[in-house]
Design a binder for these strands. Sequence first.
DNA 1: TGAGAAAAAGAACATCTGTGCTATTCTTTG
DNA 2: CAAAGAATAGCACAGATGTTCTTTTTCTCA
Lengths: 203, 203
Amino acid sequence: MGKGELTRQNILDRAVGLAGLLGLDGLTIGRLADELGLSRSGLFAHFRSKETLQIQVLENAANQFTETVIRPSLQAPRGLPRVQSLFEAWVRWFKDLDKSGGCIFIAAAVELDDRPGPVRDRLVEIQREWFQTRARVVRTGVEQGHFKPDLDCDQFSLEMNNIMLGFHYMARLLDDPRAEERARKSFRTLIENSTIKPKKQDS
Amino acid sequence: MGKGELTRQNILDRAVGLAGLLGLDGLTIGRLADELGLSRSGLFAHFRSKETLQIQVLENAANQFTETVIRPSLQAPRGLPRVQSLFEAWVRWFKDLDKSGGCIFIAAAVELDDRPGPVRDRLVEIQREWFQTRARVVRTGVEQGHFKPDLDCDQFSLEMNNIMLGFHYMARLLDDPRAEERARKSFRTLIENSTIKPKKQDS
DNA sequence: TGAGAAAAAGAACATCTGTGCTATTCTTTG
DNA sequence: CAAAGAATAGCACAGATGTTCTTTTTCTCA
């Protein structure tokens, strides 16, 4: 592997952080070059347009996400534990990102909402996959008998997403120190509503 | 009221839409002037910096929100109906905005996450107020006996926010036609978990 | 070590940004 | 209707943007 590929990876790593902070549009070539001690044109040569840079940044972020959130969680026992593990890893992802600017996917989601093109397309694809991965893990939990047999797994997947969106919003914009605690409470309720009810136990 | 105030209002109205589409930063003075048939300098003279323009845009959006979402809902009977009315009006707000770019508050929330300054400060204030308004309405519902007496009203307010964030995300980025239906389902569950349980009824 | 290729830098481009200053047009009011 | 003041346009600025082309430096491999 030549040196080009190496610095390209370097660039992308830094770019993911910057895009979380400033968005995929706010991520500017000059700024990125400065932070890496490169010239604008030198950096630019690696990607031949800003658009392909943006796409590769997304790609890189997706890989990081798979590696640090999804893959490790899939080693937990299937069913409820795996769902919980996914949640925990996801929370950790946000907390790590919190120091260096927000989550690039959330930033991009809002930014590309209404801007058609290949960058948006790629983002949508990534998000759809992640959505389905969650739903699949939950479905396995149903088959394992951990969750109610008639559970709407897509809805569950979506509720997880809602919780994380709210967590991000509350922790980063409102600076609420209870954000994590509240996200956990939401998740606990979600689990309680979805698992098989134990025999009723009066207090 | 002079003519200046009038066109200023005109500018702000258009600017709110554009900011929802492009963000508060993407909202550029040249673009805004073009769309209104003004000159950049002519428009600029109304606000004396981009920053005060952004703040006034936020202010204007907050007024619109209060007028079309909050105020009408407060006329519903207090308690559960008022909470539901708030939810309905909020959904409608999103659906109306969907045609002309997304919700400016969500766009700004993600954008200003990490950019300190008066614009961010104002946004946070607006969002905190709205958060508390919801919580207050729910608290009244508790006093009315509609909700469980030990309900965590702040948490309820936050759950509503989560649902709306997810709705926006799902409808706009993923283009999922079931977004609204799913948001309603989430809300129904939230209500069921929070209201006084009816005597248990086996199916 | 030296030839050829790869990577990076430099300079220039057209365009856009926010903003200031000056001139012109329009409104209001006496 | 005319004078005063407010609202808008025109022009210029310094800086940043993505991108292209040319030159220089650095790496790779025989």
